[in-house]
Design a protein around this nucleic acid. Structure first.
Length: 566
RNA sequence: GCGGUCGUAGCUCAAUUGGAUAGAGCAACAGGCUACGAACUUGUAGGUUGGGGGUUCGAGUCCCUCCGACCGCACCA
C-alpha cells in the first residue's frame, strides 16, 4: 500500500495485482490514450462494502461516456473474464453505486499474521527516509512548575516524535528556555521575597511576582547555603544570583517532570545563548540580504506584511536589544539549517502567533518548512465538578500533581485521544478509575489477557505458533477481522505522521483491543485441536506485538498482567 | 474592531485529507460466565454535523454569510 514501509503485508501485493488488472481493463474500455487510468484502493469507511474499494469508475465515467455504475460493472466483468486466476486471491468483486468493492481471499489476511510474527516489534517500521525533522514541544516559561497544558503538548510531541522515527525520519526533539527576558528578573525578585519572608513574614511580595508556594523550598535552599548574607545586600548584587538560581532549579524540576512522563528531549535551547552566539545577527543578515529588513522609528523591522502578517514586526528595538521575534527568527534559521522541516506544538496562548512563526519559513526562503500546532486548552473535571484554576490565585494544579493522581500511563493516553486543536475535558476521576470506562485499561487489559493465555499454553505449541505455523486454519470472521486490523498498523503510523495526528494511534490501539476481545469471545484459543490452537496462538501473539508497538509509540506501558481487582 | 482555532449523539471524542447508510466509548435499556482473566462481550435506542446559501457526479470536510464559544492583537516573553 505504501512503498516506504518494509513488508506491510502480502495483502498489498494482492491488491496491486487487482489494481493492475483493473487498469488494463479500463484502458481497453476507455479508448483515451492520453491519460492511462490509475486505480487506487482504499479501505471504505463501512467494511460491509468490502475490504477495499476504488472510485476509478466515478472518475472515468465521463470520458468513457457511460454512467459510473455501468462502467464499474463492466470493469468487474472484464477482469474476471480476462484473468480467471484472480479468483484465487479475490473472493468477491462487486460494483455498487459506481464504486468497485473487493473482498480478498483469506490467504491475504493469514499472511499478514505471518509478517507480524516474522518482523516482531519491527513490523510497520519504515525504511530510513533521510529527512531530518525538528520537533519542538513543551517549552514552558522557566518561571514555575509544568501544568496540564504542557502535559498535553509533551504527550502529543513525544508520540509524534516516536511515530516520525518509526516511519523512518530523523527527528530532533527540542525545547526552548526563555531565559533572556525580564521574566527572569521577576523570578529573581519573587524568589528574593520568599527568601526574606523566611525570617520576616511581613516582607512585601512583588506585585507582578510569581505566586504559588513552589519558590519557598528554593528560598530555603539559598538560606541553607548562604545564610543571611543577602539580607542587607543591594538589589544589583542579589538579583542576578537569585534569577539564575531560580532559573536553574525550575528548569531542573521541569526536566524531572518530563522524566516521570517518560520523556527526554534531545536539545534544551537557551534563548540567552542565541543572543550571545551571534545567531540573531546571522538571521537578520540573511533577511537583509533578501530585502526583508527596513529601518524606521529608530528600530529595525521585518517586512512581515509581505508574507501575509497583519503588521510589520520589530526585530531590533530602538535601544539596540533584539525582540523575542528576533530570537525566534534566529532559532528557526538555526533549525532549518539542521532540518528539512520544523514542527512546533505550542500552548493555546500562542494562537495569534501561528502566522508570525510560519512566515519566518517563507522569509528564510523555505516556504512551508515551519508548521505550528496548537494544543488547545484543557478543562479539568473531578467527581463531575470543574476544577477551578487561576494563575493569579496561584492554585494551579501542576502536572506533577496530576501524575500523582492518575499515573503517567493514563495521563499520556488521555492527552493524546483528542486532536490537538480541539479543546479537551480531562476527567481525573475517570482517568484513575481502573474499569471498563477507562480506555487505557481496556487496551492494556487486551495485552495482559494475551500474556495470560500464553502463560497457560503448552510451550511447544507456543513455539510453533510464534514460528507462524498453521495460519491457513484461520477462517472465522472474528479471526479474519482481527488479522485485517493488524494489517492496518503500518498505514496508521504513516497517517499519524502525515496528518500530525497521534490520536489516530490511540484510536487504533482501542480498535485492535476490541477486535481481540471479540475474537476471544468467539474462538477458544487453547482448545482440543492442537493445530487450531497453534494457529490461534499465532494470531494472539501477533496481536500482542501490534498492541505493544502501538502503546510503545504512545509512551504507554504494555503490562504482562494487570493488578487484580479487589 | 481585526485575526486565529473551533462548533458533530445526553457526555467525551472520531471520520483514511472531497466518497457510499456520519462512527466509537461512556451514560440508558435488554441479554451472555460449570470456558483460556466478565477489567470481557451481544443487541436496542440515541443526529437536519450551530443556521442559511454556493461550488460538483458527491460536502461534516472547500467558498460566502450569519449565530455562538475560546484565544490572541507589544519596540513583553
Amino acid at each position: 500500500m505504501n512503498p516506504t514501509t518494509t513488508d506491510s503485508g502480502a495483502q498489498s501485493q494482492t491488491l496491486a495485482r487487482i489494481a493492475a488488472a483493473l487498469e488494463r481493463a479500463a484502458a481497453n474500455l476507455v479508448a483515451d490514450a492520453e491519460a492511462s487510468p490509475r486505480v487506487v484502493f482504499e479501505a471504505p469507511r463501512n467494511l460491509d462494502f468490502g475490504d477495499f474499494s476504488s472510485n476509478v469508475a466515478l472518475q472515468l465515467a465521463r470520458r468513457a461516456r457511460r454512467s459510473p455504475q455501468v462502467l464499474a460493472s463492466e470493469l468487474v466483468e472484464r477482469i474476471f473474464a480476462d484473468e480467471p486466476d484472480l479468483r484465487e486471491i479475490l473472493s468477491e468483486a462487486t460494483a455498487v453505486g459506481g464504486f468497485i468493492n473487493v473482498r480478498l481471499a483469506n490467504g491475504a489476511w493469514q499472511s499478514v499474521v505471518g509478517s507480524v510474527l516474522r518482523e516482531g516489534p519491527e513490523y510497520g517500521r519504515g525504511r530510513p527516509t533521510g529527512e531530518r525533522i525538528s520537533l519542538e514541544f513543551g517549552s514552558a516559561n522557566p518561571t514555575g512548575p509544568l501544568v496540564v497544558v504542557q502535559g498535553r503538548t509533551l504527550s502529543l510531541g513525544d508520540a509524534l516524535a516516536k511515530a516520525f522515527r518509526f516511519a523512518g525520519h530523523d527527528v530532533t526533539t527540542e525545547w526552548i528556555i526563555n531565559d533572556a527576558g525580564s521574566q527572569i528578573e521577576t523570578l529573581g525578585r519573587s524568589l528574593y521575597a520568599r527568601y526574606r519572608q523566611l525570617t520576616d513574614p511581613a516582607f512585601p511580595f512583588p506585585e507582578d511576582g510569581y505566586p504559588g508556594e513552589y519558590l519557598i523550598p528554593l528560598a530555603q535552599n539559598i538560606r541553607e547555603r548562604d545564610g543571611a548574607r543577602w539580607e542587607s545586600a543591594p538589589e544589583i548584587e542579589w538579583l542576578p544570583s537569585f534569577g539564575t538560581f531560580g532559573l536553574d532549579a525550575i528548569v531542573a524540576e521541569q526536566q524531572a517532570t518530563c522524566a516521570r512522563f517518560g520523556i527526554s528531549l534531545d536539545r534544551w535551547q537557551s534563548e540567552r545563548a542565541l543572543h550571545q552566539s551571534g545567531a540573531i545577527e546571522k538571521g537578520i543578515e540573511f533577511l537583509r540580504g533578501h530585502g526583508h529588513i527596513f529601518e524606521g522609528e529608530g528600530a529595525v523591522w521585518v517586512r512581515a506584511t509581505h508574507f501575509g502578517d497583519d503588521k510589520d514586526r520589530v526585530i531590533v528595538r530602538n535601544d539596540g536589544r533584539p525582540t523575542y521575534f528576533g530570537a525566534d527568527v534566529a532559532y528557526h534559521y538555526d533549525k532549518l539549517s539542521r532540518a528539512a522541516r520544523a514542527i512546533l506544538i505550542l500552548g493555546p496562548d500562542h494562537h495569534g502567533y501561528i502566522a508570525r512563526l510560519e512566515l519566518i519559513a517563507a522569509a528564510l526562503d523555505r516556504p512551508g518548512a515551519i508548521r505550528v500546532l496548537i494544543a488547545q486548552q484543557m478543562t479539568l473535571v473531578r467527581e463531575g465538578e470543574i476544577v477551578p484554576m487561576s494563575k493569579r490565585a496561584g492554585n494551579v494544579l501542576t502536572l506533577d500533581e496530576i501524575l500523582d493522581e492518575v499515573g503517567p500511563d493514563a495521563a499520556r493516553f488521555f492527552f493524546v485521544i483528542p486532536n490537538p486543536d480541539s479543546p479537551m475535558t480531562f476527567d481525573l476521576t475517570l482517568a484513575k478509575e481502573q474499569s471498563t470506562e477507562n480506555p487505557v485499561f481496556y487496551v492494556q487489559y487486551g495485552h495482559a489477557r494475551i500474556a495470560s493465555i500464553e502463560r497457560r499454553a503448552s510451550p511447544s505449541l507456543l513455539e510453533r505458533a510464534c514460528a507462524g505455523e498453521r495460519l491457513e486454519l484461520l477462517s472465522e470472521p472474528s479471526e479474519i477481522a482481527l488479522a485485517r486490523r493488524l494489517s492496518e498498523f503500518p498505514a496508521t503510523v504513516l497517517s499519524v505522521v502525515d496528518a500530525l495526528a497521534p490520536s489516530r494511534l490511540a484510536r487504533y490501539a482501542q480498535n485492535v483491543a476490541a477486535d481481540f476481545h471479540q475474537f476471544y469471545m468467539n474462538c477458544k484459543v487453547l482448545g482440543e485441536d492442537d493445530e487450531l490452537t497453534v494457529a490461534r496462538l499465532g494470531l494472539a501473539h501477533a496481536t500482542k506485538i501490534v498492541l505493544a508497538s502501538s502503546l510503545r509509540l504512545l509512551g504507554v506501558s504494555a503490562p504482562e498482567e494487570m493488578a487484580r481487582e479487589a
